[in-house]
Design a protein around this nucleic acid. Sequence first.
DNA 1: AGCAGAACGTGACCTATATCAGTTTTCCCT
DNA 2: AGGGAAAACTGATATAGGTCACGTTCTGCT
Lengths: 245, 245
Amino acid sequence: MRGKVGIAMTESSERLYCNACEMRLNSALKDVDTASLEAIDTTKACNAFKKGHVIFEEGSAPKGIFCIHDGKVKVYKTGDEGRDQIVRFAKAGDILGYRSLVSGEPYSVSAAALEDCVVCFIPQATFFEVLKSDEHFPMTVIRLLSGELQRAQKQIVNLAQKPVRERLAETLLILREVYGTDDGDSAALAVKLSRDELASVVGTATETLVRTIADLKRENLIATDKKKIRILDLEGLIHAGNLQD
Amino acid sequence: MRGKVGIAMTESSERLYCNACEMRLNSALKDVDTASLEAIDTTKACNAFKKGHVIFEEGSAPKGIFCIHDGKVKVYKTGDEGRDQIVRFAKAGDILGYRSLVSGEPYSVSAAALEDCVVCFIPQATFFEVLKSDEHFPMTVIRLLSGELQRAQKQIVNLAQKPVRERLAETLLILREVYGTDDGDSAALAVKLSRDELASVVGTATETLVRTIADLKRENLIATDKKKIRILDLEGLIHAGNLQD
DNA sequence: AGCAGAACGTGACCTATATCAGTTTTCCCT
DNA sequence: AGGGAAAACTGATATAGGTCACGTTCTGCT
C-alpha cells in the first residue's frame, strides 16, 4: 500500500547461473534435474530491488515465480481499510508467487523488499514445464505449500486466542528462527523492521506494539537500539509467549 | 477436545466403490486414472461416524487420508487453553489429512463429524502410490493446498482487522456457500452449528457470538429457530460483512 | 413422559487494546 | 551539516469484546 510501487525493477539484469548459485543448495530448487535447471537459466531474469520496493502486488496477474537470490522479503496482504498484514517472511533460497500461479488467479498477496535484494524471475511457462518434467519438483511444491498452510493455521489460532504480548514474543522468536542473528552478536536479530511492520505481523495497532515492546524491555527480556532488537533472555521470552512445548 | 473421542470408528465397513461413487465426480479424485482408482478401491476402508465423533485428532500420527463420502465435517485446531478454533469446513467429495501425510508430521488439526458421516480411509501407501503414478493427482493436491492457503491467509487478515460483527456475517455467507441451503427453503442454511462452534469459527467468546447473532436478528438480516439459521437479507448481510467486492 | 445436563441467552462488569493527540527522536535529502 | 518529514514514543480516553454469574430452554435418556 505504501512502499515505492511502480518502477519496481531496478538496476541491471545481473547474470546469475543457478548451477553456480550457492543459494540453490538450501532452496526449493535444490533437487531439480539438470535439464530443468538449464531451462530456468535460459529463461530467467535477475533483478535488484531496493529496500521498500514492491516485487509483486496483490491483485495483479502473475507471470512467473520469483526466487530470492539475496535479501529479505515480506509477504503481506492489505485489508479493507488499507492496513497491511504480514503473512510470511522470505529469505534467500525461497520462492514466491507460485501459489497464485498454480491457481491461475491474481496475486492474493504482495511482496516487498525488507532490504536491498536480488530476485530472479522465472517465467510461468518454465515453471510449469519444470513442474511437468522434473520428477521431484511437484512434491517439493506440495511440501512448501503444506508448510505454509500449517503456519497460517497456527497464526489463525494465535490471532483468535492469544493476547498481543504473547503474539509479539512469538513473533520475535520466529524472526530469530527465520533470519537468524548478527555475526558477532548472537542476541541481535538480523532483520530490522519498523514498528509499523512489526505491528502488522503481530496484528495490532502500532501504539500497542510500541508499548508492548516497552514492557518486554522493562522486564529485561529484550533490548532495542533503533530498529535493532536484541534478545536478552531467550527462556524468558519463550515463557512470555507461552511456548513451553 | 470435547467430542466423543476414542472409539471413533462405528458401525460397518460398508462396501463402496469409487467407480460407482457419485461423490467422486466433484471430488479431488475426479481425474484419477483407472489403475489408481482400483488401487484405492482395493485398499480403502469405509467407516461411518456419528455426529460429534472425532475422525482424526491433532497430535496423532497420520496413517492415510480420509475422503468424505457423505456428511459434513469440521476441521479445527485446539489452542493452549483448550479452546477450539475451526479452520475449515469439509463436505462430501473433500479429502482430509493429506497435509500432515505429505509433511510426515503428526496431524496439526483435528476433524470431527458435524452430522452422521460416511468417510473412506485410504492408506498412506496407496496415497503416495497414486501421487507417483497418476499424472494429474500431484497438481490436484497442489491446487487444493493452494486454495486452503489462500483462504487461511484471508482469515488471518480478517481476525487481525475485522470486528466480530463483520466476521460473523462473512462466516454465515461462507457456510451458505460451502453447504448450501435446505431444499424447499433457500434461505435456511443447511448446516447446523452450536453457538460454541459458531464462536470458534468467528474467533470470539460464545457470549459475544450470541449477542452478535441477536443484533443481526434485530436488524432483520437473519432469523433463527434453534440451530437453524435463515438469511433474510442477503444484500444486507453482505453489507454487514463489508464485502462489496 | 420426565428429568438431568447441556446449550442458549442476558445482564453487569472489567480489561485489553484501539484511537486520538501531542512530543520527541530518527532518518534522509540537498 | 541542517532542516523537514517520517517514525517512534507517551499520555489520555474510549470501546469492543471478554469474563462471570445466573436464569431459561432444549435435548437426549431411561
